[in-house]
Every structure is written in C-alpha cells, then in structure tokens.
C-alpha cells in the first residue's frame, strides 16, 4: 500500500511516497540510493545498519519506514561538514586505523555519534556500551574504542 511520509533526512525536509511494508533501511539504500548505511544480518543483531533517529541510535533494518514520519533521521552521509569535510569521528577512525574491511564502520560511527549527542565526555565503559550492538569481525574493537576516544579529545 502506497503512503506518503514527511520527515527530516540529513537536515533536509523530505516528502516521499513509500510502500508501507518497507523498512527504513530498504528505503535509504534501494530507493534513495544512500548506500553508506549497510545491511549486515537484517535482524538487528549486527548494527551495520545503524542510523540516528531523534538523536538515538536505531537499527534501520527493523525500523518500519512508516515510523520515521515527522522524525529527524541522520545517516553516515549526513554527518560530514561543509564542502564534504570529514566529521571528527570519520577522521579519527582513519587516523587510528579503526577501519579494516570497512563494512561495520558507518554503523560504528553512527553509534558513536549518538553517544556524543547524549554524553559530552564519555568514558571507556560508556563507549563500549554505545557500540555493544555493533559487530566488527576484523579489528577486535580496540582501535575503534581508541578512535572514539581520539574524537572525544579532538572535540
């Protein structure tokens, strides 16, 4: 069933016609062609599809697109600064070597982004809690935690 929704995506007001059974992830990747958000498991286990909705990290693979109506959605494409300057988190991930295959990276960064929205000065435990729903099969997480700490110091 086709339905109309209005919401804010990466700072811009969007009005779109969607199928009511779509997930937010499907809409982002297959319709809007925003391919930064990844589909890993598709069941809310891995966090590769993490986006930020109203300042909270959410698995977009389980999020019905109809529920974003009236909400503020931020994806990895929306966090860079003017002139496509990288976000401090993106820079820190590169500089600290926190990216290997890169598949978990957008989700990790969005989880970290939501953490900074909630806490200005998170400690290691806060960081681990923020990324507990994001699986990385390459790094062993240490570099990722280092990168988030580096971004915190750079703020």
């Amino acid at each position: 069933m086709k339905r109309e929704i209005k919401f804010k995506l990466n700072g811009e007001e969007v009005t779109a016609e969607v199928e009511s059974h779509w997930t937010l992830l499907y809409f982002l990747r297959e319709v809007l062609k925003l391919k930064g958000t990844k589909e890993g498991c598709g069941y809310g286990e891995c966090g590769a599809c993490t986006v930020v909705i109203d300042k909270m990290a959410v698995n977009s693979c389980l999020f019905p697109v109809m529920e974003v109506n009236g909400k503020d959605v931020l994806t990895i494409e929306g966090i860079s600064g003017p002139g496509e300057a990288l976000h401090p988190l993106q820079k820190a991930f590169i500089e600290e070597g926190a990216v290997q295959c890169g598949f978990c990276t957008p989700g990790m960064i969005m989880s970290a982004y939501a953490l900074f929205e909630e806490k200005k000065n998170p400690d290691d435990e806060d960081i681990k809690e923020a990324i507990e729903g994001n699986l990385c099969r390459c790094t062993g997480y240490v570099k990722i935690i280092d990168a988030i700490n580096a971004a915190k110091r750079g703020k």
């Binding site: 966090g47 990290a57 959410v58 729903g133 994001n134």
Partner: peptide, 9 residues
Amino acid sequence: LGSKQIRNV
C-alpha cells in the same frame, strides 16, 4: 538487555 539500538526502541 539487547544492545543500545534495541533498548532505544
């Protein structure tokens, strides 16, 4: 319970 992403919704 679950993860941050799960607890949020």
